[in-house]
Structures are given as structure tokens and as C-alpha cells.
Computed example of a mutant assay.
Amino acid sequence: MKALTKTDFHFEGQKNVYHGKVRDVYDINDDVIVMVATDRISAFDVILPKGIPFKGQVLNQIAAKFLDATTDICPNWKLATPDPMVTVGLKCEGFRVEMIIRSILTGSAWRAYKEGCRELCGVKLPEGMKENQRFPEPIITPTTKADEGHDLNISKEEIIAQGIVSAEDYAVMEDYTRRIFQRGQEMAAQRGLILVDTKYEFGKRDGKVYLIDEIHTPDSSRYFYADGYEEKFEKGLPQKQLSKEFVRQWLIEHDFMNEPGQTMPEITDEYAESVSERYIELYEHITGEKFDKTVEEGDIAARIEKNVADYLATRK
């Protein structure tokens, strides 16, 4: 099984390229960006040493589906998906904030709560909550985009006071966040899933706020299976979930949380394939469509380069 873990394309009009943890972003004429979802995988803010076959395709195709399904709520950056692993979209000036919205106390929020935290990003948390319990209503817990390392929790008030985002733009982002999340939850429910939490990124172009980047993928979101959720919660059992959390849990079990002195465990081919299968499982659950593996036959990078070049030629 093949995985695309790095790219080095040279498209016509290319100004620069940014290699992120998972995505490689090519700037074309300071107007559009070509975002390649690679098969890299990251956890605890570190890129794992082995790629996950089909992961980029899963992320890109799920994100495209949800971007298309939310255009009535807010404008987004997507123009086209010329390749299963690529989205081309409008270049926006990104806000240095990630809007994280949570409907259930789990993951890092639960780990903090268990340690005694009762306020998260300026949001007061009720006493006596249990792991995987629903909040009375979804809470927004933003983070600031760090140049490197961990993103930092921050409150709405601090974001506005520090001038990271204006009060007007933040109000728009907050409104969009709640409405897109509600749409995502409705779509997940139709597939027997619960959209537990997710993150959104926004940018600005010509004075207008746009939704940018991916949405509702297993890298940016957590899904539980609806069937059995209540019973498992009442019994204090772990929820069956579709998200990247299972990778984090595997790393924790192997004594790795990217802390000083810790060593990354070996990622075997068998483990990489099992992660790939979990990503495909989520794709098929959330989209209701059969996943097409045939696109990874042949030279992946050459296919992407041709598909993107052909698309960009149509924009001239």
C-alpha cells in the first residue's frame, strides 16, 4: 500500500508553498491556493514517521462534501476538487484563531476537567460532570494558532482584547461556528453518528469572512456511534468512536505524548493499514458512499500534478 507523505510541485503561477503537518498549500498568483491533503498523520503536534494510505483522499473528500453542504450558511473558500486529494480555493487572510466547538465532555477537555479544571477558555463548566456527558448546549473553546508546537487555549474576551480578531469578526465566526456545527450534527445523525466536537478555521477576503480549510473530517472532528451511546455513558464504558483519538490513545498506551524524553513507538505497516481502515470506515459511515480505492493506483504525485495543472489551465 502506498502513501503520499511529501510533495514538491511546481505549478504555473506558483508563488510559494507551505508544508503543514498534514497539508501542503501552494499559493497560485496570490489569488487561489492548491491544498494537497497528504497521507501524513500527526498527533500531539508531531508528524508520525509513517504515512497512512488513503488518508489524504478520505480527508479531502469528506471536507469537500461538508463544504458543499454548508454554503447556504456561510461562504467558504472551495472552488473545485480537481483530484481526490486536492482542493483548490480562494486565498484568504486566515485569522490566527481556531474555533473549537464541543457538545460532549471528552478528550482533552475531559482530561483537564478530571484534573480539577472548571473553566475552559473563559467558559465555566458545571460541577459533577462525567466523561462523555453532553453539555447543556455546545460550548466554544477557541485556541490561538501557534507558530510551532501546541496551539494555546484562549478566551473570547482575550482574543478581542489582544486585537487578534475584532469583536465584529468574532461575532460572525461564532455565529457561523454554531450553525455549521448544528448542520454537521444533523448530517451525522442521519448516518447513526454523533458529531461530538470539531474545529473550524476562518479567513477574510475582500472584507468578507470565509470558512477555510477542512471541516468535519476525522482529523478535525470526533464522532461517536449514536447506537449504544446512552448505555455506555450510564455504565461508564468507553464510547465507540470514529476519530483520530484512537491514534492518540495508542500513542498514550505506548508512553508517548510528545513530552521530553519520550520516544515515538514504531509504526508498523500493519498498524498503518489498520489506521487506514478506520479512516475509510468513517468515510463510508459519514458519507453513506463506498470508498473508491482505485485512484491510488499508479504514481500518486504525477496524477495530482496533471489534474491540478489541467484545472489551473481552465482558469486562465
Rank of each mutant, 00 (worst) to 15 (best):
S243Y: 07
T294F: 10
V308P: 04
I267W: 12
K204G: 04
V32K: 02
Y223D: 07
D310S: 07
Y225F: 14
I104F: 13
I104A: 00
T263W: 10
I101H: 08
T141N: 02
V196E: 07
Q162E: 15
K240S: 14
V196N: 09
R315C: 08
C117Y: 04
I280P: 07
R278A: 15
V25T: 15
R205T: 05
L79T: 09
D227C: 04
A109E: 08
G163A: 08
Q241I: 15
T217N: 04
K2H: 14
T177I: 06
K156E: 12
E266V: 12
V165R: 04
G184R: 01
I304F: 10
E214C: 13
K204P: 01
R178Y: 12
A112D: 11
I212C: 02
A112T: 06
P238R: 02
P218I: 08
E289K: 15
K293G: 10
I101E: 04
E157G: 04
C121G: 01
R205G: 08
I73E: 10
T287K: 10
L282S: 02
E168I: 10
G51S: 06
L195Y: 07
E230G: 05
A189W: 08
E281Q: 14
K65Y: 15
K290V: 15
L120K: 00
I52L: 03
G236L: 10
K145A: 12
I73W: 09
S108M: 05
E168S: 13
R183I: 04
I252V: 15
G184P: 06
T217M: 08
I139Y: 00
V34R: 07
A189N: 13
W110R: 00
G116S: 01
